[in-house]
């Protein structure tokens, strides 16, 4: 895994959003994924209306948020889904109060601090991260429209009381979010990279954090 400081384009975007001071020094996982590209912020400059541009930028960022690597752990119920087809987690898992599974069958019963290779199985690896856990109940994304996800993301009542700046930092820096771009053998990654996602979120914030309908 290679790790490098944020690309110039992101720094530029953050500067434009007036967020550099809040975020620096920020690092992210720049490893790209085979999940395809994310549009750069600049590609939205042709949308004259700032409000519409903001919506379009969030819609682009939502390609990451709704990717199985992300949304599998933002389920509608308190049980995660699994795999590219987002089937219910096998075995049955529930979040419990900790969001880390019940004692006796915690997430960490199987998921380690890193991805773990397994041999002989089509699964290839058990994904892992030091902070492996289910998103809080308020952040249930499955079954929501992109607009509904957007409104949840910026609602401080439901997003862990995160400011817009906190959101950019979270998307760009959080270790568990970053895991999505190196999900282990046998799993696809979302499009783009963590810095590119953070750049989009920053640009979305800068353009007014408007939500698609």
């Amino acid at each position: 895994m290679t790790k490098r400081t944020l690309t110039l384009s992101l720094v530029a975007a953050l500067a434009a959003a007036g967020l550099v001071a809040a975020l620096a020094p920020i690092t992210g996982y720049a490893e790209t994924s085979g999940g395809g590209a994310l549009k750069a912020v600049s590609e939205f400059s042709s949308i004259a209306d700032a409000k519409e541009r903001s919506k379009a930028i969030f819609a682009e960022a939502s390609r990451v948020l709704t990717h199985p690597r992300c949304i599998n752990c933002h389920p509608a119920t308190r049980s995660p889904t699994q795999g590219e087809d987002m089937h219910p987690h096998v075995p049955l898992m529930i979040a419990a109060d900790s969001s880390m599974g019940p004692a006796g069958l915690a997430c960490s019963s199987c998921h380690g601090a890193e991805n773990r290779g397994i041999v002989g199985s089509r699964l290839k690896s058990i994904p892992g991260n030091a902070h492996w856990q289910l998103a809080p109940e308020s952040m249930a994304w499955q079954g929501l429209t992109v607009g509904e996800i957007c409104r949840q993301v910026k609602d401080t009542e439901r997003n862990g009381n995160r400011s817009h700046a906190d959101l950019v930092k979270h998307m760009g820096e959080d270790h568990l979010v970053g895991w999505a771009w190196h999900p282990g053998e046998g799993r696809s990654a979302p499009p783009g990279s963590q810095p590119e996602l953070a750049a989009l979120i920053a640009a979305w914030v800068h353009t007014g954090a408007e939500c698609p309908d």
Binding site: V90, P91, L92, S121, R122, L123
Partner: peptide, 13 residues
Amino acid sequence: EGNFDDSPVLRIH
């Protein structure tokens, strides 16, 4: 099929 992921069996719940 090759394991309990794609060849499931009944569980306690």
